[in-house]
Design a protein around this nucleic acid. Structure first.
Lengths: 213, 213
DNA sequence: TCAATATATGAATGGTCGTTCATTCATGAC
DNA sequence: GTCATGAATGAACGACCATTCATATATTGA
């Protein structure tokens, strides 16, 4: 349930070799794009990281642009699907908001490169692909906006402006990728619960329990 | 006081012509880097935007890398200086936190390209320059961390983890650049006060006045 | 076993990149 | 009027870019 990924893991022992170049390209391109930016990474760089010549990449992706679009739409679809799963069956704005935060922060801790690229490289996408990714992002935001609207309507939340607070909460949570490191001072669970409390307080809830854990 | 800028404005009528190419290059490079990213902008692009051939840029900046470093350090120094000014004479964590938010959000509304580049293009800087900019950013963050520490010590704030909350607040506020547009639904002042309230609530303060305005 | 298919190579394509440089031009000081 | 200075030009440089392609090699299904 915690293992959302559109890039299949390469089996370590299974069935002997057969290198899955397509997914290796995805993995290395993702890493390099996140590290240096789309424009600063060449097909040679990707090929070198994978262990093939640049020409071989074109057996799996039509172009560099196509590769980027594959990564971004793949990520966004996986993200939204996983969100639906995480909120499934939950009722009430307080519980749903806490679940949203736990999901979002957890996902961003686990897949920082994916989310960074989806945010940063929108500008590198050609219009068609960009519009598609943009629509997916709006769908994601709309879920949080819906939760905040419910909570504000019911009087559970104290919110100056729902649209602004939606983006403020997302920006706050997404920022976890800037500093979180595995093995750092704060563990995954502590970090997530910290964001839950901050978010709850930001909508005016000071319950020490921070919603139901 | 609201007009912090390390890129001198080109006078519109004063003293007749004499085009200040150096500052025109700064201005256009800043715009283009923010729009497309450092790696995706060529010296030819910048020259064209300014109205000179690419070679002329080298009369004013030693290299493309030097131009980026000039923009980033120029911005960071102006930012820190302006922050010091904004907090000058203010006492108490509540008042200082409100002033910090007003300053940060206001600055980010006014100079979105500067702050976006300073955040995004750190990776495009060679080690020396990067370290320098990084140190300036830490100094900036340290001011907010100090305010939160004071407030937590005095019992005015309710904060799960000061280091995390420092970054969470900065990320939340910085996100204003993603959506704010002049002439949009929310004006500059409303936007700023919205962030003040959200920030105050995020540290556990629910005073409807949102600190002293 | 053999043909079909998928994948990799290495060289080449035309373009664009950052940077350099000899030269020209305009300005202002003396 | 002369000259030094700062700034712009246009052409050139070697390097690297994304992409293509003929060819070679491996894997698969029948």
């Amino acid at each position: 349930m915690n293992d959302h990924s559109y890039i299949e893991a390469t089996p370590t022992v299974l069935k002997t070799k057969r290198p899955d170049t397509r997914n290796e390209v995805r993995r290395e391109a993702l890493r390099l794009f996140a590290e240096r930016g789309y424009a600063a990474v060449s097909m040679r760089d990707i090929g070198e990281a994978v262990g093939v010549r640049q020409g071989a990449i074109y057996n799996h992706f039509a172009s560099k642009q196509d590769l980027l679009a594959d990564l971004m739409t793949g990520h966004m679809e996986t993200l939204i699907e996983a969100l639906d799963e995480a909120l499934d069956g939950l009722d009430g704005p307080v519980a749903r908001l806490a679940a949203f935060v736990r999901f979002h922060v957890g996902y961003h801790i686990d897949k920082p490169d994916d989310v960074f690229i989806a945010y940063m490289e929108l500008r590198s996408l050609e219009p068609d692909h960009r519009q598609r990714v943009h629509a997916l992002r709006n769908r994601y935001e709309a879920v949080l906006r819906g939760i905040l609207t419910d909570g504000a309507t019911q009087g559970a939340f104290r919110i100056p402006d729902i649209a602004v607070q939606t983006r403020a909460i997302i920006a706050m949570m997404t920022g976890v990728t800037v500093w979180y490191r595995e093995g750092g001072r704060l563990g995954r669970r502590e970090t997530i619960e910290g964001y839950v409390q901050m978010t709850m307080q930001s909508v005016g809830i000071n319950d020490p329990a921070g919603g139901d854990k």
